[in-house]
Lab assay of single mutants.
Amino acid sequence: MGFKLLSKLLVYLTASIMAIASPLAFSVDSSGEYPTVSEIPVGEVRLYQIADGVWSHIATQSFDGAVYPSNGLIVRDGDELLLIDTAWGAKNTAALLAEIEKQIGLPVTRAVSTHFHDDRVGGVDVLRAAGVATYASPSTRRLAEVEGNEIPTHSLEGLSSSGDAVRFGPVELFYPGAAHSTDNLIVYVPSASVLYGGCAIYELSRTSAGNVADADLAEWPTSIERIQQHYPEAQFVIPGHGLPGGLDLLKHTTNVVKAHTNRSVVE
């Protein structure tokens, strides 16, 4: 069995187990497998329904001669939608809004960016022009300005110390501490036991640490421990890039980060 097929099978099995364990909360999309990078042309966006009122959005972007996937989250909030992270750029984010209108038909009224990198804030200006209120932590807003990236308009308070959590509509926002970046936030959907790890969490097929220019490698494993301790009931975990899975993604990420750190020390 090929690795790609095995990865998709694991996603399907995880979703099936969740649907059985929580039949009222989960209505997993039966329309197909989780979209992969090879299936999404740059400039297009796919939506994948995880649970009743919960979707991931998947886009792709060219970077350094390669094409990478990027995940975000959409959560229903009454007759409105909360968006977590842009679709990595203005063109993708405009396509995301169009796809949401086509498939869901509810307005996106608020959006949260989970850290300051372009795959999370690139497209904020498109959201703002569409009347979406954009939010991020003060740290993310400051770092985005320093980096020359787009800056969300509103500040999220109460997320300055490791372990801080605040309720934001249908989700809980959690600051686990520094990891992929010093400002990275985690998003949890309690009604569906869905954990969105953003770039602080890796997919299972990833074996290298990737972009760690703004990471705190020493603190990252401790931050992941905080996530595990705060959300032990999480059933569906979405990484910032690639295929979702279960809580095993947290341990896998820790292993990859520690291996990278150990290699760096040896070198």
Rank of each mutant, 00 (worst) to 15 (best):
A200C: 14
V187H: 00
S7N: 05
G158F: 15
Y34F: 06
L6Q: 06
I84R: 00
A51Y: 15
F26P: 06
V237L: 05
G163L: 08
S264N: 15
W220G: 00
H180W: 00
Q235S: 09
R263G: 09
L185K: 01
G197Y: 01
N149H: 11
I74F: 03
S7D: 08
T36A: 07
L9D: 06
L106S: 14
Y48G: 10
A87I: 00
Y202A: 08
Y188R: 00
G148A: 14
A209N: 05
A215Y: 04
A209C: 09
A209G: 11
G210N: 15
S70W: 01
L6A: 07
V121Y: 03
Y48V: 09
I151V: 15
G53E: 14
V256P: 00
E39L: 08
K91I: 09
D216H: 06
F63G: 11
L97R: 01
P152F: 05
D125E: 11
A234M: 14
W55S: 01
S139P: 12
R206E: 14
G240Y: 00
L83G: 01
V265G: 14
G78P: 04
A259N: 15
W88N: 00
V75A: 10
S208C: 05
V237N: 02
G89S: 12
F236Q: 15
E172I: 09
P69A: 13
A66F: 08
V257A: 08
T114D: 00
A51G: 11
S264V: 13
I201S: 03
L9Y: 08
G78K: 06
A59C: 09
R141P: 03
K258W: 12
L217K: 07
I20R: 11
N255V: 14
A15S: 12
S191R: 07
N149F: 14
R76W: 09
T14N: 05
V189Q: 03
F168V: 11
D64V: 12
E172K: 04
E44N: 15
A15E: 05
E44P: 11
V108M: 11
V257W: 03
C199H: 00
A133P: 14
R263P: 07
R120Q: 03
V28Y: 06
Q103P: 04
A98C: 05
T134P: 03
L243V: 06
P107H: 11
K4F: 04
L24Q: 09
V257R: 01
L185Q: 01
E39H: 07
R206G: 08
A66Q: 13
V146I: 13
V11R: 05
A98R: 08
Q229P: 03
P176V: 01
L247G: 07
V108G: 02
M18D: 09
V132E: 02
F63M: 05
A192D: 07
G246K: 08
I20D: 07
Y135M: 04
T60N: 10
Q49R: 13
A215L: 04
R167M: 06
A59T: 07
T182F: 10
E157W: 14
S191Q: 09
Q61P: 02
A144V: 14
R263Y: 05
A178R: 08
I84H: 00
T134V: 13
I40A: 12
V187W: 01
S155A: 13
K258H: 09
G89W: 02
T109Q: 14
S205Q: 14
D77Q: 07
D183W: 01
S160M: 15
V42I: 13
L13N: 14
I201T: 10
T261D: 12
Q103T: 11
A234T: 06
I100N: 02
V67C: 13
P69R: 08
S139H: 10
V166A: 07
G246H: 08
V187I: 08
Y68H: 06
S70A: 06
N255I: 08
V45C: 03
P23M: 13
S30A: 10
